[in-house]
Write a protein that binds this DNA or RNA. Sequence first.
DNA 1: CCGTATCCTGCTGGATACTG
DNA 2: CAGTATCCAGCAGGATACGG
Lengths: 131, 131
Amino acid sequence: MGTRKEISELPPEADLARADSLAREIFSDVANKWAFLIIEFLGQGTMRFGELRDEIGGISHKMLTQNLRMLERNGLVRRTVHPTVPPRVEYTLTEAGEGLRLVVDGMCGWTQRYLGHIEAARSRFRDPVAG
Amino acid sequence: MGTRKEISELPPEADLARADSLAREIFSDVANKWAFLIIEFLGQGTMRFGELRDEIGGISHKMLTQNLRMLERNGLVRRTVHPTVPPRVEYTLTEAGEGLRLVVDGMCGWTQRYLGHIEAARSRFRDPVAG
DNA sequence: CCGTATCCTGCTGGATACTG
DNA sequence: CAGTATCCAGCAGGATACGG
């Protein structure tokens, strides 16, 4: 075997290679902007439906419900209903959800770090001469 | 620069709070499954259009083109055209792209680690009694 | 081989209204 | 307050064709 790395472990994308694999399916489910925003804001702590809606901003009732159900189905978010009037429903990250939160935090950091690069690239793309 | 105080005490999602902020816009652009898959597979090294298409699998010509343009526009991917016949077009991650790759690698690792949790959660969701 | 354009279908996702 | 359902405009995204 080669001299490239000491350990010939599988590359990180190994399980994404087959489009019909479970890993690929989960990846495709979760890697969308609403899911990421929900995970990120829920990272602040347990929140009610309306609170979360307000925190995120710009998300419709329908999209929030739909994505929360998807995240619940995949065990990233736990839903707790308090049988009061009016009802109080709280959402919390599970352990898996907290794990994903670290990834999303990483993406937030990345956005911060490369904001300048990206803006520059955008103007270069609009006007290839000036760059 | 001098002794600037660390601003890292702000929560990671601070810049995502306003739905119309630049950070939020970039975040929303890039956090989608095709972009992530492209970044991840391009992490293996420079690739031609067709190669990348084959590696990813299950992506249409149109989606690949469209997302590659978006990533190029944001400076995550560099496009090199070799003026031969037939043409040879190669795509490479930029520094910013490599930075994002680390995040996506993190997500691949997360998927691996919680695959079992997620499968369990799914069956629990289908049949709340049995678990 | 790669890019762009066009067509067309089905799904996304917003707005609204009603229920408990 | 939260969930679900309905309606429907608009875009996503696949298939195809042609040009460089």
